[in-house]
Amino acid sequence: MVENRPWGNLLAHLILIVGVALVIFPVYVAVIASTQGPGEFLRGTLPLLPGGHALENYSAMWQAGLSRVGAPPVGQMLWNSFVMAMAITLGKLSISLLSAFAIVYFRFPFRLVFFWLIFITLMLPVEVRIIPTFQVVADLNMLNSFAGLSIPLIASATATFLFRQFFMTIPEELMEAARVDGAGPLRFFKDILLPLSVTNIAALFVILFIYGWNQYLWPLLITTDPNYYTIVMGIQRMTTAADSDPQWHLIMATVVMAALPPVLVILFMQRLFVKGLTETEK
């Protein structure tokens, strides 16, 4: 690693460049495609240089959507996705923080039972329990609602585990010192545990937000009202439009817009990460 071998370096860089190109290329194609006019795709060759229709494609999708296939304006779908992703993220974070707090810091009857119950939910992601969950959500009249979109996805324990692990690394004396300092359990949670968990919360926020944003199967199943379409399933709707060719230039414009919010979340949270990494204590 430390020694300087020109050929080794070159090779390493080549491999990296190829790898990056492989990842970037589809993104590039999507961006390029979103700037083309309606006719470009029918010629059978993929254009690799930007076209001149960017503004018109993006504004059309943002404002009007593809009404012909029943897709609402992108702006609205982005908002729906955002609400769902945020609800899932915040819901999961608060539930998992509180349940990890309970499991680590309180001795209550059947503590182990609860622990295992939570553990078992790890084995039951939405896709596995999708039929019964649909039934429950339908019976509760939550089809076509934000509650129906987010609540079934909130119930899972991944984050609880991560926080439990993290809380167990916090020295017990900290809790005792807080007790002597007159902090009750909730105050200890708010004043000590939460600030110490900032880095973990930021990391999980990113992961959970993207998880929520990318949900596909579940929204597809329970939303029939276009007002609740999320962006990811909206894209799918557009590509499967009956008796016409998919309008790729418009779809790609949607794809690019759909990819932006997660990128923004990562960019924003990265600052918190770095702050957390440089400021927290071992």
Binding site: P171, E173, L174, E176, A177, A178, V180, D191, I192, P195, L196, E279, T280, E281
Partner: peptide, 14 residues
């Protein structure tokens, strides 16, 4: 109404 000094100090790191 007591105060305690811990062996590892237990200062609040943040």
């Amino acid at each position: 109404d007591i105060a305690m000094v811990f062996q590892n100090y237990a200062l609040y790191p943040h």
